[in-house]
Amino acid sequence: MTGDGSENGADRPRSSPSLRAREEPSESIVFEAACHARRRELCRLLDETETDDLPMSLADAAMALASREQDVPEAAVTNYEWERVYAALYHGHVPKLDELNVVDYDQGSETVAPGEHLTPVVEAISAVRAAVDDAATAETDAADSPDPADSSGR
């Protein structure tokens, strides 16, 4: 391992997180962006949002995520729940995703939009979700199948 933490032996100076985020998205960037359910949901929300509706206000993003988390219509989200989601996005998740170039965050207008690395993160999230779904289906199918060694027909 080199002084910059890489294993390829390149003699590069240690890069700051903001410089690292400008490079091609690495596995580490994808994992860091997708490590929390709320970050994954925000990435999916931005990916699913029509271009005309972007950038999205942080308040609207918080409402949409609170609705998804509670599995209720937006009109049924309590102010308390909206505030919890908004605060977590504002103070933690959005700044981190902005640092990783997954979202573009304008703090002045409090809006978020897809960043340069959003697509690879969403693709990784979708691939993991599909793999988990496939594994669960295979496990269910195996549990429902009769045991070929059991000749009693039970």
Rank of each mutant, 00 (worst) to 15 (best):
E123S: 12
A124P: 05
D11K: 13
P73D: 08
C35V: 14
D98S: 11
C35Q: 15
Q107D: 12
N8E: 08
E41D: 15
P146H: 11
A88F: 00
A143C: 05
Y105H: 03
V121S: 06
A142Q: 14
R84H: 07
A143L: 09
L19S: 14
A61H: 03
R38Y: 09
P55K: 05
E32I: 13
A130S: 12
A124K: 06
G5F: 02
S15C: 08
V85H: 05
G92V: 10
A127P: 05
H91N: 03
Y105D: 03
M63G: 00
D53N: 15
T78D: 05
R129L: 07
R38D: 10
D133H: 08
P17T: 02
E83C: 06
H36N: 15
P55D: 05
R68H: 10
R129T: 13
A62N: 04
N79T: 10
G108Q: 10
T140K: 13
G92Q: 12
R68Y: 07
D134Q: 12
D133Q: 14
S28E: 11
P73M: 07
A37P: 13
A59W: 02
R14F: 11
D53F: 12
V94M: 04
E139A: 11
Y90T: 02
M63W: 06
S145R: 14
D60H: 12
P17E: 06
D141V: 10
E116N: 12
M56H: 02
R14K: 14
L65E: 00
K96I: 06
N101S: 13
Q70L: 13
P114L: 05
V112Y: 01
M56P: 00
R20A: 11
D71F: 08
H117A: 08
A143M: 09
A127G: 03
V128M: 08
R154N: 09
T140F: 13
R20D: 03
R68P: 02
L118V: 04
V72C: 09
V77R: 03
H91Q: 02
L45V: 04
